[in-house]
Every structure is written in structure tokens, then in C-alpha cells.
Design a protein around this nucleic acid. Structure first.
Lengths: 227, 227
DNA sequence: GTCTATACATAGATAGAC
DNA sequence: GTCTATCTATGTATAGAC
């Protein structure tokens, strides 16, 4: 699988994502016309992610968001009750999509070696397709209220659990060496996250997403596969 | 080398660091008595790092800092001209110490294999000894003004260059495989950074700093060493 | 549904007393 | 050198017109 194949496979239209957000937040969204809500949610989220790729969510004022999204300050408050809720809305939706797509993709693997490759590739490809979401989710997690922070941590551990399970399976089937499983999963995750945290670096060096994914697979297999 | 040996070897007293900051910022520090400055700088920086391990620098108000440090709001402004300058002061000093200690330690290695181990260990041990500094420097880098951001990026690339040089040397001496050097250095760096970015995770799992360093060395050597 | 105007809160920075 | 009091700017959120 290459990045281009992945993109065709996984349909991540903005309308669909926006529709899911509407489903989950009917209470706090005051506007009634579905078409309008979906349209404006897209504009609001796009604007937020664009601004927050340059400065922090805290530093983004409602005035900034109004200017970038084209909606007035007053109108914005028809789509969320306060600024913190907007943060939570984007974060929780991002986490949900990520987990769903990842598990769907990995289910296609037949053995641990294949599953490991699929897991690495899907994660990197997904973070490429939704790089502003991933960056935002990672970098702004600490500014969430306590209970939402808990959910973010659970989500991080859940993704890691996917790798832990694959590696355990590989050891059981004697395809992988008997390494410290939790540590192996943790450092693989660290390498995956670097792709969207340091995009500027890889872009400057002209490293493609396929290059990067292949290299992470090379490192993981060098560490895990029995020689 | 273990973490305990490293700590004895590298003396990182707060007074010394604070003294260096005074040297570099004589202009903006209005207080004249050296002893007072050094004492209060320590309190200010400790307070900042403590607050910013829980919330962002932006979210920390001067009032917060006043309460935590024990100095009044007015007094604080005798040690920096504005809030942004405080951010720059802490960041630049953190980067300087890190680079100095790292290069000093690595110079002790005699061959690429030994140097690679030394580089990995010193980096992880240093980030353990100064974990609040490292975390702060990483997480708040994006909130720096443009020109200071440039310096932060240069510093990141400089640390990575250390690894690139070691790996190149290893390949030349036919101790290492002929891998993509920049990518290898980048993913090693990613693993090193995970130690201070996800401390909560490793603490919960009771992974010691020595465990972690050994595992990263294991991954790096599995990827690089000729079998 | 969306806008403009505005109330209200909070934060950074300074002046002047001690 | 440090404090308290205060000025001013900026930002969130709402009310009421359109």
C-alpha cells in the first residue's frame, strides 16, 4: 500500500466529518438548518486549524477566528457555547476518526508481520491526510480541561495497545524476538508522531511520506524480526 | 555509564545556571546586587517551569507567577522587561546548556559504536536531569517570536547533526550499514524526545531512565550495526 | 441566522509610595 | 529593591437590531 492508494481507500470528506460533529453536538449548536451547520462547521474548523498551525489555541482570539472564518463573533457562538467547547469538539472528533480508520485498516492483516506493517503505514498515512488535525490534537491536548485530558490519554494508550497486541502475537508465533513489548510499542509510536510534529524538517529534506513509512518499518523490523 | 554516574559527572547547579543567565542579560535586569539577582532568578525560573508543566506559558499570568515565586508583580519586572523576554531567557539558556553538555560527553567516545551509545545516553540522562527545562523548551518553542524560533530550529538541527556525523563515521568505518543517515538520526531523535514528552507514561509503567536508554540503544544498534 | 455594539473580565505593564 | 494601586489593552461572551 502507498499513500495514494490509502487516500483513495479511506474517504475522509469534510462534509462527512462535519456531519458527525453535528450528530454529537446537537445540544450546543443553536442553528437548525443542517446544510448551514455543516457548511459553517467546516469553515470554523478549517479556520481554527489554520490559525493554530501558527499560534496556540489560547493565543487565537475569537476576533481572529471571526476574521479567518468569515463569520461574525456573534454568529460563531451559535455553533459552540464557549471557546473551550470548540477545542473539545475538534479534539474528540479527531481522536474518534483516527481510531476508527486505524482499526479498520489493521483488521485486513493476516499475520503479525503484515499487521505491523499495516499499522505503521496506516498511522503515518492517516496523520499525513489529516496532518493539521493530528498536530492540533497532540499540541493542544494539555490545554484541555481535566476530564477531557483523561480521554486524550486513554486514546493515546489505546493506539499504543494496537501495537502491543501485534507484537505480543508476533512473539507468540515466534516471528518476533522476545523484547520488552511495551517499550517497543512506545518507541514505534514516538517515531510515528515525529512525522506530523516535525513536518517542516521532512519537507525541507524532501522526505516523502512513503520514504518515511518504509524507514520506520525498517527500524521496527530490524528490532523485532528474528534473524 | 548509568544515570547516577552521569549526575555526579555533570554538575548542573541552579546557582551556576542562574549566574550564566545574569551574564547574558545584564541589560534587561535592573537589580544590581548579584546575590539577590541569582536568588530571585532561580525562584522565578523554578516557578515558571512549575506552572508551565500544568498549563501553557500564555495561560500563565504574571499574577500566577507572582504568587508562585513570592515576588510581587512589580518586582518581577525588575528581572525582565516583558513576559516574552522571560520566555526567551529560559529557552535560550536551556538550549545552551544542553548543547554544551552533550558535545562534552560525546567527545569522550573513541569509535562510532561507543560514540552512538554515549550520545543516546547523555541526551536521555540530560533530559532526565533537566526534564522541566526540556519539556518547556520543546512545548513552548512555537510561541517564540520569529527570530528566536529560528534559533530553536537551528538548535534542534545541531543536535541532530551530532547523530548524523556519528552514523556517517560508522558507515565509513564499515561498522554500520549503509542506511539513510538523515532518517536514522531523525528517528533516534524522536525516540530521545519521547522520554521527556511522555514522562507520565513511563512513570506509570515503572520504566527507569536506564531501562529506556538501553532500549533505545538496542533499537539503534539493531538498525545500524552490521550483523 | 447573522450582524453590530457593548458589557464585563482578565491580563500586562507602570508609577509612585515605602 | 519591593510593594500596592492603577492605567490600558485585549479578549470572551451576550443583547438586541436587522
Amino acid at each position: 500500500m502507498t499513500y495514494n492508494e490509502f487516500k483513495k481507500l479511506v474517504n475522509l470528506s469534510k462534509e462527512e466529518i462535519s456531519g458527525q460533529i453535528l450528530e454529537r453536538n446537537r445540544d450546543s449548536i443553536k442553528v437548525k438548518k443542517e446544510k448551514k451547520v455543516i457548511d459553517n462547521l467546516i469553515r470554523i474548523i478549517d479556520a481554527t486549524l489554520a490559525i493554530c498551525s501558527k499560534k496556540s489555541f489560547q493565543a487565537m482570539s475569537i476576533r481572529d477566528l471571526s476574521a479567518e472564518s468569515g463569520l461574525s463573533r456573534g454568529a460563531l457562538y451559535s455553533y459552540f457555547t464557549n471557546k473551550e467547547e470548540l477545542l473539545i469538539l475538534i479534539q474528540s472528533q479527531g481522536r474518534e476518526i483516527a481510531y476508527r480508520v486505524l482499526t479498520e485498516q489493521i483488521a485486513k492483516g493476516n499475520d503479525p508481520v503484515e499487521k505491523l506493517r499495516l499499522a505503521i503505514k496506516s498511522h503515518i498515512y492517516l496523520s499525513e491526510a489529516m496532518r493539521t488535525w493530528f498536530y492540533f490534537t497532540y499540541i493542544e491536548a494539555r490545554n484541555l480541561p481535566k476530564d477531557e485530558q483523561k480521554r486524550a490519554i486513554e486514546s493515546e494508550l489505546l493506539t499504543e495497545k494496537i501495537f502491543i497486541d501485534i507484537i505480543n502475537e508476533g512473539i507468540k508465533e515466534e516471528a518476533f524476538r522476545d523484547v520488552n513489548v511495551a517499550l517497543a510499542a512506545a518507541v514505534i509510536k514516538a517515531m510515528l508522531q515525529d512525522w506530523y510534529l516535525k513536518r517542516w524538517k521532512y519537507r525541507n529534506r524532501k522526505v516523502s511520506v512513503d520514504n518515511y513509512a518504509d524507514f520506520v518499518i525498517y527500524v521496527a523490523e530490524s528490532t523485532l524480526l528474528i534473524k
